Amino acid sequence: MPRGDKGKYTDKQKRKAEHIEESYEHKGVSKDEAEARAWATVNKQSGGGEKKGGSGKTTSASEKKTARSDSAKRAAKTRQGHSRTSGSSLESQSKESLMKEARSKDIKGRSSMTKAALVEALRKHG
């Protein structure tokens, strides 16, 4: 596409540029400057003319927002760690995780404990 060729722009983009250009001319900006500013604005807002390629899949803003929200909820759930409701939840944790919990409960001798000992101490400590 040679420089200055507007053939790849949609009709909507062309109308928008024309409207912006008229607005600048009304404010006293020269014709050439108004045109340059108008197309710069259209390019900034829409990324330029029609592009080749892509997946062809269009995702609406609301779908993107929902996907982001779902992703954030999954991430928050992951950060919460294991639930303490089941008796086997302590066994399913890593030793490092058990060590952190023991440290937060100030269990003495935790550094030399095995994983099984940490589980037992945490159960007793409540």
Rank of each mutant, 00 (worst) to 15 (best):
K12V: 08
S60Q: 04
T114A: 05
K44I: 08
S104V: 02
E120A: 14
G54T: 01
L98P: 04
K31S: 12
G47L: 06
A38I: 07
K57G: 14
S62E: 15
G49M: 05
W39N: 07
G126R: 08
K6W: 01
Y9A: 15
D11M: 13
G109W: 10
G7V: 06
S88V: 03
S111D: 14
T41A: 12
W39V: 11
R123K: 14
R110N: 03
D70E: 15
A36T: 11
S104E: 13
E120T: 10
E96L: 08
D5C: 09
G53S: 01
K14T: 01
L98D: 05
M99C: 07
I107G: 03
A116D: 08
K52H: 03
L118M: 05
Q93H: 05
K27L: 06
K51N: 03
R79L: 10
R3A: 15
G87A: 11
E33G: 02
E21N: 08
T85N: 09
A76S: 14
S71K: 15
V42L: 02
T114E: 09
T59I: 08
G53W: 01
E101Q: 12
G81T: 04
K51A: 15
A40E: 09
E22Q: 12
E63G: 07
E33A: 02
S104Q: 09
Q93F: 07
M113Q: 07
K57M: 15
G126V: 06
S86Q: 12
R110H: 09
N43G: 10
L122I: 04
S46V: 05
A67W: 01
M1R: 09
R37H: 13
Q13R: 09
Q93C: 14
T85A: 15
K65F: 00
D70V: 03
R68W: 02
G4T: 03
S30W: 07
A17H: 00
T85I: 13
G126H: 04
E96Y: 06
E25M: 06
A72H: 06
G7Y: 00
Q13W: 06
L118D: 03
T58R: 09
R37V: 08
D5A: 13
A61M: 08
E25R: 11
Y9K: 12
Q13K: 05
T10W: 04
Y24D: 11
R37P: 10
K105A: 09
K65Q: 15
T41N: 10
A116F: 00
V42H: 02
S89Q: 03
K12D: 07
K16R: 14
A61Y: 01
S30N: 10
K100E: 14
E18V: 08
E101T: 07
G48Y: 03
E91D: 15
K115N: 07
K52T: 12
E63S: 09
T85Y: 10
A36K: 12
Q45E: 13
E21Q: 13
A116Y: 00
T58D: 11
R15H: 08
D70K: 15
K65V: 05
K108H: 10
A40Q: 09
A116P: 06
A17N: 02
G81K: 01
S94Q: 04
S23K: 13
T66V: 11
